[in-house]
C-alpha cells in the first residue's frame, strides 16, 4: 500500500473541495449545484480516508460510510426538489427561486 505524506492526501481533498465550492457558487443551474455538493462531500470523504490511513485505523472508513449514506439521502431529496422546482418555474435557474426573500 502507498506510504505518501498525509499532507498530500489532505491537499487532494482541499483542492477537490475548493473546486466543488467554486462550482457551487458560480453555477446557476441547480443540477450543477447538486453535482458540486457531491464533489465537496466526496472531498470530505477523501480527507477522512487519508486521516484514517495516517493512523492505520478504520474509523475514517466508517466516517466515509456515514458520508455516503448522507449523500444518498441528500441526493434523493435534492433531486426530487429539482423536479418540483422545474415543474413550477419551468427553469433550472436557482436565482429564479427568490420568493422567500425578506
Amino acid at each position: 500500500m502507498a506510504t505518501v505524506p498525509v499532507a498530500h492526501g489532505l491537499l487532494l481533498a482541499g483542492v477537490l473541495f475548493a473546486l466543488g465550492l467554486v462550482a457551487l457558487l458560480g453555477r446557476r443551474n441547480v443540477i450543477f449545484m447538486l453535482l458540486a455538493v457531491e464533489i465537496m462531500l466526496n472531498a470530505a470523504g477523501v480527507a477522512f480516508i487519508a486521516a484514517g490511513a495516517r493512523w492505520g485505523r478504520v474509523d475514517g472508513q466508517v466516517m466515509f460510510l456515514f458520508i455516503l449514506t448522507m449523500a444518498a439521502a441528500e441526493v434523493s431529496v435534492g433531486l426530487a426538489l429539482v423536479l418540483q422546482f422545474y415543474n413550477r418555474t419551468r427553469t433550472l435557474d436557482v436565482d429564479a427561486a427568490t420568493s422567500m426573500k425578506g
Binding site: R28, M33, V94, D95, T98, S99, M100, K101, G102
Partner: peptide, 10 residues
Amino acid sequence: LSALQNGRVR
C-alpha cells in the same frame, strides 16, 4: 437585514 435575505441560495 431583509435586504440580506434576498432569497438567492448562492
